[in-house]
Design a protein around this nucleic acid. Structure first.
Lengths: 252, 252
DNA sequence: CGCCAGATTGAGGACGCTCAATTCTGGTGG
DNA sequence: CCACCAGAATTGAGCGTCCTCAATCTGGCG
C-alpha cells in the first residue's frame, strides 16, 4: 500500500532533530490522512475554531496569523513543505490564532487521536513532537529579537537566512527561496509595511546580498547576508549532534 | 518527609491546564531538587551552556534573554514563581539563549533525567509538559504581535495585563504587580528604551489606567487597560474547560 | 492590446530613539 | 535622626527610521 510522500517528508524532518526507532517511524507512516487543497489567502483554520486534526503541509506555504481590530496583521510563524503546521493544536485544540494559506497549498489532515495515541504509546515519539514544538518556540523567540532590536535591513536579512536554511535543512542555506511569497507577506511577518520591505530589498540588492525577482528570492552572498542579520543557525537545530544527548537517555 | 513548596506550586500550575492522575502528581512531587539563590542581574544559564537540569522558579523573576553584538537586549520570556523556566531544555539541553535573574531569585534545580523518566513512564505528564511548552509559544506569539503591530502604549498595557493574569492565575488579573521590576526591564521585554517606557507609563497614569510606584505596578482600571491593549486572556489558557477535551481522550 | 495585482518611487509626518541634564528614592553610615 | 550617595526615574531637545498616502510603473494573463 502506498504511503504518502508527505508523511515520509515529515518523518525525515523529525529525524533531523530526534532519533526514531523503526517502530516509531512505522507508527507515523501508518497515520491516516485526508488531503485538502487551498487557494492563496484562504483560511485553513479560523481564529476560535476547535480543531481535531493537525495540518501537515506538503506543498505551498502556510502562516500563523494574529490580528488587531484595526486590521493590522502579524504573521507569527511560517510553515513550508514537511512542517506540521499546528502540532500544538493536538495539545490545545481551541485555536488562539488563525492559519492561512499564503499561496496555493496542499495540506494533509491527520486526526489528533492518532497523533496522541502514537505519542502515548511511544515515548520516543512524544519527545520528538515535544521537541519540534520547542524548536518552533526558539524560532519565534528569534523573530521577537528581530522585531524588538533589529532594524528593517537586518530583520529582512535574518528572515531570508532562516527560510533558506529551513528549506535546505542545513545550517548553510540554499541560494534560492522559491516560495512565491509577495513583499506584503514578508511585511506581515517582519512587522513592517510592504512599502518599507520594498525599499529595504533595494538596499540588500544594492549591496549585492540578496534580491527579489519574479516570485523568488535569491541570496547573492550568503556570508554578507548572514553578517547583516547576525544569523546563527544553531537555534534551528538542523544538525542532530546537539540533540544526541537526550536520545542517549531514552529507555531501551 | 517534607515536599518542597515550590513543587506543590508547580503541580498546581500544571493542573490549571491539564488533568493529572494521583500517580502523576506523586511522581512530580517526588522529584529531587537543589535550591539555588541568585542576585539581581546574575546569570542562571549562560548562552551556549549545556544544562542537565530544569529551573523551577520559586521566588523572584527570571528572564530569557537574547542579545545582539551591539549589546541590545531582548527579553523573550518572563518567568515568575511556579513557572518551570526552561522546561524546553529537557528537550534541547544546549542553551540557545540565556536565562537571567532580573531580581533576587530562588531557583529549584531538577535533573533532566527525572523529568524525562516521569514523562516517559506517564503519558499524561508528557502531555502536561508538552502542553505547557505550547502555552509558552502562544505567549511569545502574543509578544510578537505586540512588537510588530502595537504601539508603545498598547504594548505596555498588554504586558501589564498578561503579568497580572499570570500572577493571579485568572483571566481577570490582580490589581497589583509586585515583581520589583525596573522600567529598564520592561523596556528589554517590550523592544523599547527605558526612556520611552517612562513616557508611556506617564500616559497610562494620566488616563488613570495603570501606574508605577515604588517597586510595584498598580492597575487602576482593568477594563480600560485591557481595552487599550486589546487584551484577550484566552491565549494563556488559565481556565481548564478549554483544555478538557484532550484530557478526555487520554487512555484510562 | 488592455487589464490588474503587485512592485516601485516620492513627499511629508509621526513615533520612538539618542544624548543629556535633573530630580527622586531608598538604603547607608555618621 | 539626618546627611549622603548611587541607582533609578523623569524630563527636554533634536533626530532618524519607518509609516502614510499617493502616483506611477511593470509583468503576466485573458
Amino acid at each position: 500500500v502506498g504511503v504518502s510522500e508527505a508523511l515520509r517528508l515529515f518523518v525525515r524532518r523529525l529525524e533531523i532533530r530526534s532519533v526514531l526507532a523503526a517502530q516509531e517511524r512505522a507508527a507515523v507512516l501508518a497515520w491516516p490522512e485526508q488531503v485538502q487543497r487551498f487557494r492563496a489567502n484562504e483560511d485553513v483554520i479560523r481564529l476560535g475554531d476547535t480543531v481535531d486534526t493537525v495540518c501537515l503541509v506538503s506543498d505551498g506555504i502556510l502562516a500563523r496569523v494574529e490580528q488587531l481590530v484595526n486590521g493590522n496583521r502579524q504573521v507569527t510563524a511560517l510553515y513550508v513543505a514537511g512542517d506540521m503546521a499546528d502540532l500544538p493544536s493536538a495539545m490545545l485544540p481551541h485555536a488562539s490564532s488563525g492559519l492561512v494559506a499564503l499561496t496555493e497549498a496542499t495540506v494533509h489532515r491527520i486526526p489528533h487521536r492518532h497523533v496522541l495515541a502514537s505519542a502515548d504509546s511511544l515515548p520516543g515519539l512524544a519527545r520528538a513532537f515535544w521537541r519540534d514544538c520547542v524548536v518552533d518556540t526558539y524560532i519565534i523567540a528569534q523573530w521577537l529579537l528581530s522585531l524588538g532590536r533589529r532594524d528593517a535591513r537586518a530583520r529582512l536579512a535574518h528572515l531570508l537566512c532562516e527560510l533558506s536554511c529551513r528549506l535546505a535543512g542545513d545550517t548553510r542555506g540554499q541560494p534560492v527561496i522559491n516560495l512565491n511569497l509577495r513583499q506584503a507577506h514578508l511585511a506581515d511577518a517582519l512587522g513592517l509595511t510592504s512599502v518599507h520591505v520594498n525599499r529595504t530589498l533595494r538596499v540588500l540588492r544594492e549591496e549585492r546580498a540578496a534580491l527579489h525577482v519574479g516570485r523568488r528570492f535569491e541570496i547573492l552572498d550568503w556570508d554578507r547576508l548572514a553578517a547583516i542579520a547576525e544569523f546563527d543557525p544553531a537555534y534551528l537545530h538542523l544538525n542532530r549532534e546537539e540533540t544526541a544527548a537526550p536520545a542517549a537517555l531514552r529507555p531501551e
